[in-house]
Amino acid sequence: MDTYKLILNGKTLKGETTTEAVDAATAEKVFKHAANEHGVHGHWTYDPETKTFTVTE
């Protein structure tokens, strides 16, 4: 398992979190669910070198 990071750049919610996942696709599902639960919808990017997802509203 690897550690993946999410950076939230929402209009009303900003922050960072991490998750352990077997691959980037699994981490993305976890992060998108969490972002949706917090009402953050926007443009997603992924940097494979740093294993970091970013969502920007």
Results as ranks from 00 to 15, higher is better:
2 D>S: 14
21 A>H: 02
1 M>S: 09
48 P>S: 10
53 F>W: 05
45 T>S: 13
23 D>G: 03
28 E>Y: 15
42 G>F: 04
19 T>R: 04
50 T>Y: 06
20 E>C: 13
16 E>I: 12
52 T>W: 02
30 V>P: 01
4 Y>G: 02
11 K>C: 15
50 T>P: 02
16 E>A: 08
18 T>S: 11
44 W>V: 02
29 K>Y: 08
40 V>P: 02
13 L>G: 07
10 G>K: 04
49 E>R: 10
28 E>P: 00
55 V>Q: 01
4 Y>T: 02
18 T>E: 08
22 V>W: 11
41 H>Y: 14
4 Y>W: 04
6 L>N: 01
23 D>K: 02
12 T>P: 04
55 V>C: 05
13 L>N: 08
42 G>W: 09
44 W>N: 00
54 T>W: 07
6 L>Q: 01
38 H>I: 15
15 G>A: 14
42 G>H: 02
56 T>M: 06
52 T>D: 00
14 K>A: 07
36 N>H: 13
57 E>M: 06
46 Y>C: 01
47 D>S: 07
34 A>L: 15
18 T>G: 04
56 T>E: 08
35 A>L: 14
27 A>F: 01
7 I>A: 03
1 M>T: 11
56 T>Y: 08
54 T>E: 06
19 T>M: 11
16 E>L: 08
18 T>Y: 14
25 A>Y: 10
54 T>Q: 05
28 E>D: 04
12 T>V: 11
12 T>M: 11
26 T>C: 07
31 F>Y: 02
49 E>W: 11
23 D>S: 07
48 P>M: 08
34 A>H: 15
52 T>Y: 03
12 T>Y: 14
11 K>E: 10
46 Y>T: 00
52 T>G: 01
17 T>G: 07
33 H>C: 11
16 E>K: 07
12 T>H: 14
13 L>P: 04
34 A>I: 15
11 K>V: 14
30 V>R: 09
13 L>W: 15
20 E>L: 14
24 A>V: 11
26 T>R: 05
9 N>A: 08
24 A>K: 12
13 L>A: 08
38 H>P: 02
17 T>N: 06
19 T>S: 04
44 W>H: 01
22 V>A: 13
9 N>K: 10
51 K>I: 02
12 T>L: 11
25 A>R: 10
37 E>V: 13
17 T>D: 06
18 T>M: 09
9 N>R: 10
48 P>G: 06
3 T>D: 04
34 A>K: 13
35 A>G: 03
32 K>I: 10
13 L>T: 11
17 T>A: 13
21 A>P: 00
56 T>I: 08
7 I>W: 04
42 G>T: 02
18 T>C: 11
55 V>I: 08
10 G>Q: 04
2 D>G: 09
11 K>L: 15
28 E>W: 15
32 K>F: 07
37 E>N: 10
17 T>I: 15
44 W>Q: 00
1 M>I: 10
36 N>V: 11
15 G>W: 15
55 V>R: 01
49 E>T: 13
30 V>K: 08
41 H>C: 11
14 K>I: 11
37 E>D: 09
36 N>W: 13
43 H>M: 13
25 A>W: 10
10 G>L: 15
5 K>A: 04
8 L>G: 02
54 T>D: 03
35 A>I: 09
2 D>T: 14
5 K>R: 13
40 V>I: 15
19 T>V: 14
47 D>F: 05
19 T>Q: 05
24 A>W: 12
16 E>C: 15
50 T>E: 06
46 Y>M: 01
11 K>M: 13
24 A>N: 04
49 E>C: 10
20 E>V: 14
31 F>N: 00
15 G>V: 15
9 N>G: 04
2 D>W: 12
16 E>R: 07
13 L>Y: 15
23 D>E: 03
19 T>L: 13
27 A>Y: 00
55 V>K: 01
37 E>C: 13
45 T>Q: 09
6 L>R: 00
37 E>P: 03
28 E>A: 10
49 E>H: 11
41 H>S: 12
42 G>A: 03
19 T>N: 03
21 A>Q: 06
36 N>Y: 14
9 N>T: 07
25 A>G: 08
12 T>I: 11
40 V>H: 03
22 V>H: 10
20 E>R: 13
39 G>I: 07
6 L>V: 04
22 V>L: 12
8 L>P: 01
29 K>S: 09
27 A>P: 01
25 A>F: 10
33 H>G: 09
54 T>S: 05
14 K>W: 12
10 G>F: 14
3 T>H: 06
16 E>W: 14
38 H>C: 15
7 I>E: 03
44 W>S: 00
39 G>K: 06
40 V>G: 02
42 G>K: 02
2 D>C: 14
10 G>T: 14
24 A>C: 14
42 G>V: 02
34 A>W: 15
12 T>K: 10
8 L>M: 13
53 F>D: 00
40 V>T: 03
